[in-house]
Simulated assay, not measured.
Amino acid sequence: MTQEGAPGMKMLPRVLTGAAALLALAAPILLFAQPASAASRDGVCDSGEFCYYYNSSEQGSVSDFTSSVSDYGTTEPTCYDFKGPGNGQGTCIKNNAASVWNRSSQTVRVYYNTSYAGSYQDITAGAKGNLNATLMNENASHQFLSSGGSTCSTSGLGDPNTCAQAVSWAKSHEATTYNADYYDRCDHVVGLAYGWGASGSTTAYNHWLAVPSAYKHAGDRNVPAGGLAFFSGGAGHVMISIGGGQFVSSDIGGNGTLTVTTIATIESRWGKPYLGWTQPWFQANH
């Protein structure tokens, strides 16, 4: 995956003394409801908000959020910027934040890349402190997380098949011999499972990028049956969960096959980094 930051270009003069340990949750699941108590973005770190600071140790100008953002932008006046008074005010926040304060009730994950990808750091509810050495001044997106459970749902998506029907299709179409409809067509296969003649996306990775954040669970490996698991690396890869940590995937059992596998197998055998899972959202219907 192409890394968007520049690890060797840390803005060390802005780093102040003192560091606070930031706690991380193990494998949280994403939730996108905005905290009801949070105020609008005004450069003040209010209760219910996640806040970036331009300097370390929660110093300098503040940029406050109540929801996930997949791309901050890099050019004024359209980028997300530091709004509060102090050092850094008016600067775009992408690759310019040194510390954070999470005043929301949810864990917030800060990513090195846009679109919720690359290295990340989890900031638990109530935690404050400096971003780690990888993320300091190299922040490109963030997501609000939760430890609650998630299930597959086609509500409002217009899919011809339900999640259960898609799982049944995947299981009934497993194949250990070559089928031209499956070879190098992973995104087409998951589209077929949900009753589409075509997924509407040119590649699996483009499909991942197109899915709205409300339906996307970046980094979460607890994929419910019917959920679509995505990987980066070239055109990427996608497969459908059948529950219990198992998936039906094209080609992993040989060219043109459709067999049961796991996330770890895709990662180790093909070297494709796992991105996360999504609800069955398809460009064919959007």
Results as ranks from 00 to 15, higher is better:
Arg41Glu: 03
His142Tyr: 05
Phe82Tyr: 06
Ala36Gln: 03
Ala235Trp: 09
Gly200Met: 11
Leu16Arg: 12
Ser232Thr: 10
Gln59Asn: 15
Asp184Asn: 14
Gly219Ser: 10
Thr202Ile: 13
Pro160Glu: 09
Ala193Gly: 14
Val189Met: 12
Pro273Trp: 08
Ser105Asp: 12
Leu131Cys: 01
Ala210Pro: 06
Ser199His: 06
Pro212His: 13
Arg14Phe: 15
Thr203Arg: 03
Lys94Trp: 01
Thr203Pro: 02
Ala133Pro: 01
Met9Pro: 01
Thr2His: 07
Ser63Tyr: 00
Gly48Tyr: 05
Pro7Asp: 12
Ala166Asn: 09
Gln3Cys: 09
Glu267Gln: 06
Thr78Asp: 13
Ala20Met: 11
Tyr178Trp: 10
Ala264His: 00
Trp277Ser: 03
Asn285Val: 08
Thr278Trp: 00
Leu22Pro: 06
Ala117Met: 01
Asp122Pro: 14
Phe230Asp: 07
Ser68His: 07
Ser115Leu: 14
Gln283Thr: 05
Leu145Lys: 11
Ser119Asp: 15
Phe247Asp: 06
Trp196His: 14
Lys171Tyr: 15
Thr75His: 12
Leu228Met: 15
Trp196Tyr: 13
Ser141Thr: 04
Val248Thr: 09
Trp270Asn: 00
Leu135Thr: 03
Ser40Gln: 09
Thr151Ile: 11
Asp184Leu: 14
Leu31Asp: 07
Ser56His: 00
Asp81Met: 05
Ser115Met: 13
Met239Glu: 14
Tyr205Phe: 14
Asp181Arg: 09
Asn139Pro: 00
Thr203Asp: 03
Tyr178Ala: 03
Leu25Asp: 09
Ala264Cys: 00
His173Thr: 15
